[in-house]
């Protein structure tokens, strides 16, 4: 599937109802916290990140994207025992980047979504790694094999999740 370049007028901008905008990130956080207890491998997925990318791309607004990313990231941070802000910073960057890309590219098709998620997952992990090591002083190990494997897994899941979330989109 090609990623087509579109002009600003051609791309469609979506919005979400208030309940959807609040509940979807909360449900993503809840599932992210709960499912790994039963299915341990699920911890390689990052549902909140997928939600950030989806909202950012659909709204096509950089401010909205970065604020959504910051909010979801901070909430995700608060479920961990680490200082609050590590996921926040990483998801803010991703939210801004995804919405910037969403303005320029048509990312409505599955192939584009997979590639987009693949790219932003690596960006997210890289920013997280930088912040965690540089600012917080956590000892993290960067493994390309692990990161790329996780990125592919998340990209495939994104194709499914985005299709489900498309139902909540409203034309702006």
């Amino acid at each position: 599937m090609p990623i087509t370049y579109t002009s600003g007028e051609q791309v469609e901008v979506y919005r979400f109802s208030a309940p959807a905008a609040v509940l979807i990130p909360l449900i993503a956080l809840f599932l992210q916290a709960f499912i790994p207890l039963r299915l341990h491998f699920f911890s390689i997925f990052d549902l909140p990140l997928l939600v950030v990318i989806f909202f950012a791309v659909a709204r096509r607004s950089q401010v909205s994207g970065l604020l959504t990313g910051a909010a979801i990231g901070l909430l995700q941070d608060s479920l961990t025992h680490q200082p609050i802000g590590v996921y926040g910073i990483a998801k803010t960057v991703v939210g801004f980047g995804a919405s910037s890309l969403g303005i320029k590219l048509d990312v409505e098709n599955v192939g584009a979504r997979v590639l987009l998620t693949l790219f932003f997952y690596v960006v997210h992990e890289f920013v997280y790694f930088l912040v965690a090591r540089g600012l917080v002083g956590l000892t993290l190990e960067w493994s390309w094999a692990h990161e790329l494997g996780s990125a592919f897994a998340n990209a495939i899941l994104a194709a499914i999740v985005f299709t489900l979330l498309d139902r909540f989109k409203l034309r702006a």
Binding site: V63, P83, V93
Partner: peptide
């Protein structure tokens, strides 16, 4: 937009720095 991004990132970095500086439990968070 870029200014807002920088401001949001700066606020979070500042928050992180405050938390990291305190070795005890972060009551503020």
């Amino acid at each position: 937009n870029v200014s807002i991004l920088v401001a949001v990132l700066f606020a979070q970095v500042l928050g992180l720095a405050v938390q990291v500086k305190r070795s005890t439990e972060n009551e503020s968070t």
